[in-house]
Design a protein around this nucleic acid. Structure first.
Ligand SMILES: [Zn+2]
Length: 393
DNA sequence: AGCCTTTGACCAGCG
DNA sequence: TCGCTGGTCAAAGGC
């Protein structure tokens, strides 16, 4: 509760949105000649009004790879922002919403035991989904209800589980929020005295549409998730983040909002991921971002960094501008913290390239056009290697 | 037994 | 003030 109170007072309202295609140039174009990690200035970016992006089904489809902003952002700085991490799975201009198939626990267990890097239940789901829906199935539309309490209108299936980010969560609520086709689940960290919460929007297929983290863990990750942990290996991948592309300035600190997104991205092997990261209460959130980015790298994609705070009670208006069409929905992870985003005030756009041998994965981070607190990270390509093991100084 | 999810009710912010 | 909406509580039941 205290956390909540605090957030209400600090959360800014910057909202990011995908720019319209007319303002975009392809990521490849943007990256052309700028893939060596050197910053590149994008001179002709037209300011685009950021809007809150909801994964709503609309007919207006636009490429996700396109991003716009006039600012550039150093990754280090980007890592200091954290509020929203949005990712999506795509590669082609046509965006397909990753669909997760609901599978039996047995299947999940089998998948988890097959030795893939995805061991969590969600990862298993994602894996099965990617196998089943390489792309084209239009997302299931859930009719929006106009009634009073619309929560729990969906029958939750076995995929309705908190994402496995290494922490233990207890679900304390679920509700169908307006503007979202999916029910939103509310989770609290079960660690004593830890007030971290997260909201997870998941389709009825089990696909994660959005995850919003609030607060900062005041503890380290438990060795093994209490339940539904399978073999728990999912945790390991997250704790060994490659920092060749990141500045992990909070390395030694405990806890942190370590966010694992591979479970969400598990199915996005050939897709692009969209990540939104917005400024957070403090540096801690940056950990989450740091954690996400490298992980995302494994799966490639477009990452969008932005502030999500405006979502509260403002979504109804934002959905009017839904940039995503049906099948364009993007799962995303939002690291939500409350501080202002003054930390980022430069005007850079930074490009990064995976240092892996023969790995052409690239990404760039930029500031949203008219919202300094919004940063957009775009990933392109697919890593041809596993996540490198972090070197211990 | 302990922890979790489910879910209707309740509360608070906002227009 | 009222209705809408998002967020939370808490009892009940499941694992
Ligand atoms: Zn915690």
């Amino acid at each position: 509760m205290e956390l909540q109170e605090a957030e209400r007072t600090v959360i800014a309202k910057p909202v990011a949105s995908r720019p319209t295609i007319s303002n975009f140039r392809s990521f490849s174009e943007l990256l052309a000649g700028a893939t060596n990690g050197s910053p590149l200035l994008e001179p002709t970016i037209t300011a685009i009004r950021p809007k809150t992006v909801r994964f709503k089904h609309v007919t207006n489809s636009q490429p996700v790879e396109t991003v716009s902003s006039q600012a550039q952002l150093d990754r280090t700085q980007a890592s200091h922002l954290s509020d929203k991490i949005v990712k999506s799975n795509h590669t082609s201009p046509l965006l397909y919403k990753p669909l997760a198939k609901t599978v039996s626990r047995t299947t999940i267990s089998l998948l988890a035991n097959m030795g893939t890097f995805n061991t969590s239940r969600e990862q298993a789901l994602a894996a099965s989904q990617s196998e089943n829906a390489k792309g084209i199935n239009p997302p299931k539309l859930t009719p929006m209800k106009s009634g009073n309490d619309k929560r729990s209108q969906f029958h939750t299936n076995n995929s309705d589980r908190p994402s496995y980010d290494g922490y233990n969560w207890r679900k304390y609520g679920q509700k169908q929020v307006k503007g979202s086709d999916y029910p939103r689940s509310y989770y609290k960290c079960t660690h004593p005295n830890c007030l971290v919460k997260k909201k997870v929007e998941r389709s009825i297929d089990g696909e994660i549409a959005e995850i919003v983290y609030k607060g900062e863990h005041n503890h380290s990750k438990p060795r093994l998730p209490r339940r539904h942990a399978f073999d728990g290996t999912s945790e390991g991948s997250n704790t060994q983040l490659p920092n060749n592309q990141l500045n992990n300035d909070n390395e030694g600190s405990e806890g942190g909002t370590g966010i694992k997104i591979d479970e969400v991205l598990g199915s996005s092997s050939h897709l692009t991921n969209l990540v939104k990261v917005q400024e957070s209460y403090n540096h801690v959130s940056s950990e989450a971002v740091d954690a996400c980015m490298p992980t995302l790298d494994r799966f490639c994609g477009v990452a969008r960094v932005h502030d999500e705070s405006a979502s509260k009670r403002r979504k109804s208006s934002s959905i009017l501008n839904e940039p995503y069409g049906e099948g364009l929905q993007q799962p995303r992870i939002v690291v939500h913290d409350g501080t202002d985003s003054e930390a980022i005030s430069d005007g850079f756009r930074s490009y990064y390239r995976c240092t892996g041998v023969k790995c052409n994965v690239r990404k760039h981070v930029e500031r949203a056009s008219d919202d300094p607190s919004v940063f957009i990270t775009t990933y392109e390509g697919k890593h041809n290697h596993e996540m490198p093991i972090k070197k211990s100084n």
